[in-house]
């Protein structure tokens, strides 16, 4: 029944128009079906999460198994700590790697590095957890906040590297030439002129990467492990919101389910805040992302 445009009979033309209209309708329905889960997730997060949020959620430690009440104060602080550590690990490597790609690398070397970065981006996050377990948990014989921060930080490297490269390339070549013509050393030109010009874009890339890793659970399972108390020493296990949400949602206790929803709402709010920051930062420069 191939659509032959040679001899259009009115009936056939009607059928073709009808078919086209029907498929248009199906496409609209598909688009609605794709965005529906977002609204369903947000709706339930707001309804169940908001009603479960109370002051003690933000101020108290988790209660022992089965007891009602308590909060996730340590997990909130833990997540922020881990993000800070990940930034310390991931950003220098990412930014300097991006500088190499944009300013020094030959086309051939760059192709390989970009390819490797894309491959690394596809490595399942649970694998990062296993690798860091072998590197940092086994030798030091303890799960630790350091291990969790490094696992998240390594995941940031390829993301930050690519966005840094993209914004550095946008800095006009004439800036570099003008600075070099004044006799300024190449490394100073890059740091003071090029990176400085692109600083906002680089910052945006870092926040994008943070938003990506803030909700990661799998890499933390065997590195940061989780902790029901305050972490006073980064060499010891630390709690994180995603870990706590996971543990509570698969538990059999109603009160923990309630807190899992509250934790999910807080985590989602954090990630949305990061994403909104990105939008505000990159509003006046479309090219950034």
């Amino acid at each position: 029944m191939d659509a032959s445009p040679y001899l259009p009979s009115p009936r056939f033309a009607r059928w073709r128009r009808w078919k086209s209209g029907a498929i248009t309708g199906i496409l609209v329905a598909c688009a609605l079906a794709v965005i529906a889960p977002l609204f369903l997730v947000i709706y339930f997060l707001l309804v169940r999460g908001y009603s479960s949020l109370d002051w003690s959620f933000f101020t108290q430690l988790p209660k022992p198994t089965g007891e009602v009440g308590g909060g996730m104060a340590n997990a909130i602080v833990g997540t922020l700590t881990l993000l800070a550590m990940a930034t310390v690990v991931g950003v220098p490597f990412g930014v300097f790697g991006g500088i190499y790609l944009a300013e020094y690398g030959s086309d051939r070397a760059n192709d390989w590095i970009r390819f490797a970065a894309d491959v690394l981006n596809g490595v399942p996050s649970i694998v990062w957890g296993m690798v860091v377990y072998l590197i940092l948990v086994v030798p030091f014989k303890t799960f630790s906040a350091y291990a969790g921060g490094v696992a998240l930080g390594l995941m940031m490297v390829p993301l930050v590297m690519r966005t840094t490269e993209e914004v550095l390339v946008l800095v006009p070549q004439s800036y570099r030439e003008a600075a070099l013509a004044l006799g300024i050393a190449r490394w100073k030109v890059i740091m003071v002129i090029v990176v400085r010009t692109a600083l906002k874009g680089i910052g945006t890339g870092v926040i994008v990467a943070l938003a990506r890793i803030a909700g990661e659970t799998a890499p933390l399972l065997f590195t940061a492990l989780g902790n029901n108390f305050w972490n006073h020493n980064l060499k010891e296990p630390i709690s994180a919101l995603p870990l706590q949400i996971f543990a509570y949602s698969i538990s059999p206790y109603d009160d923990w389910h309630r807190q899992a929803w509250a934790g999910a709402l807080v985590l989602m709010a954090l990630i949305l805040a990061l994403n909104i920051t990105v939008r505000v930062l990159s509003r006046d420069r479309q090219s950034t992302l």
């Binding site: 965005i35 369903l40 997730v41 997060l45 659970t217 995603p242 949400i245 985590l267 994403n275």
Partner: peptide, 17 residues
């Protein structure tokens, strides 16, 4: 935004909704 929702939140939603 759908891409920004963490896996663990989808899991929670999956279990209970």
């Amino acid at each position: 935004m759908l891409a920004a929702v963490p896996s663990v939140i989808f899991g929670l939603w999956g279990i209970f909704v």
